[in-house]
Write a protein that binds this DNA or RNA. Structure first.
Lengths: 132, 132
DNA sequence: AGTCTCTATATGCATTAAGAATATAGATGT
DNA sequence: ACATCTATATTCTTAATGCATATAGAGACT
C-alpha cells in the first residue's frame, strides 16, 4: 500500500516509494483554485501555496508550478499584480482577480460540476458492479 | 460561450472553436473507466471507445489513446487479451480483467473518491463566496 | 563583518499523458 | 475491381507538471 492507501508498494531495490499506479490527477485544477483563493483575498505566491492545502491535493503543486501559473493567468488577463515592498522580508508580488477572472470562475465552476458528474458515474457503476 | 457552456469563443479568423480555457481534465481517468467496463463485460478496443460515452467525457478519448492505454494495461498485468477471429469483420483483440486488475479497481476507486472530495471543497468554497 | 536561515520569486530541463495524423488490413457489398 | 466499414497500431507533437537550481532581501547570531 502506498501513502495514499491505494496501491503502490515500495521499490525494494531503490528503497523509495514508486509512483502511485492509481493516481487520478485533475489537470488544470490549480488555476481555478488560485482564482478562487484570490477572490476571497488578494495574496501572493508563497502564501497561496500554503492555502492550497485546503483543496485536498494529494500532493501540493510545487512552488515553481504555482508561480508559473500565476504568470500565465496574468498574461491571460485574469489576475493583475503589483509589488509589495512594505512588509518584512523580500518583496511580494500581490495578485488580485480582474473582472475577466471573476467571469472565468463562474465558467470554471460549470466545468468542475461536469467533471464531478463523470466521477459520480464511475462510482455509481462501481457500486452497481461490486456492492451487491 | 463554447460548446460546453462555459467560456471559449470561436476564433473568427480561423472559423474554428479554440481550446476551452476552463477545461479541467481528469488525468489518467481513462484507465479506471476501461477496467470497470471490462469488469462488467470482456470487450475490445473499438467497442470500448463507444461505451466510454456513458462516463460523460467532455470529448471522447480518441481511439489511438484508448488502444495505447489498453496495451499499457496489459503490460502492467491488469488485463489479458486474446484475438477473436470468429466474428464478422477484422479480428478483434478481446480484453478481460485479471485478478490484479480487479484489485486495482478497488484502489482506484479510493483515489477517485478522494478526487471527488477535492472538487467538493472547491464547489463549497465557491458557493460560500458567491451565493450569499 | 561574516554567515546562516527563512522568505520569496523565477528559470531551464525532463517527464508524462494525450491528441492529431497516418498506416495497415480484413470483411462486406456493389 | 473497388469502395466502405470495422479494427488495430505507430509516429510525431503538444501541454501540463515536477525537479533542480538560481537569485536575493531580511533578520539573527557569533
Amino acid at each position: 500500500m502506498c501513502a495514499k492507501d491505494c496501491c503502490a508498494p515500495k521499490d525494494e531495490r531503490k528503497g523509495v516509494e514508486i509512483a502511485c499506479k492509481c493516481e487520478t490527477r485533475v489537470q488544470r485544477f490549480l488555476q481555478p483554485c488560485l482564482l478562487l483563493l484570490l477572490k476571497v483575498k488578494p495574496s501572493y505566491g508563497y502564501e497561496l501555496v500554503e492555502n492550497l492545502h485546503q483543496f485536498g491535493f494529494d500532493e501540493l503543486p510545487d512552488p515553481a508550478t504555482t508561480y508559473k501559473n500565476l504568470r500565465i493567468m496574468e498574461q491571460e488577463g485574469w489576475v493583475a499584480s503589483q509589488w509589495d515592498t512594505g512588509g518584512p522580508g523580500p518583496a511580494r508580488r500581490i495578485y488580485q482577480v480582474t473582472p475577466e477572472g471573476e467571469d472565468l470562475i463562474q465558467s470554471w465552476t460549470v466545468a468542475i460540476r461536469r467533471t464531478q458528474e463523470s466521477l459520480n458515474t464511475f462510482l455509481s457503476l462501481y457500486e452497481r458492479e461490486f456492492k451487491k
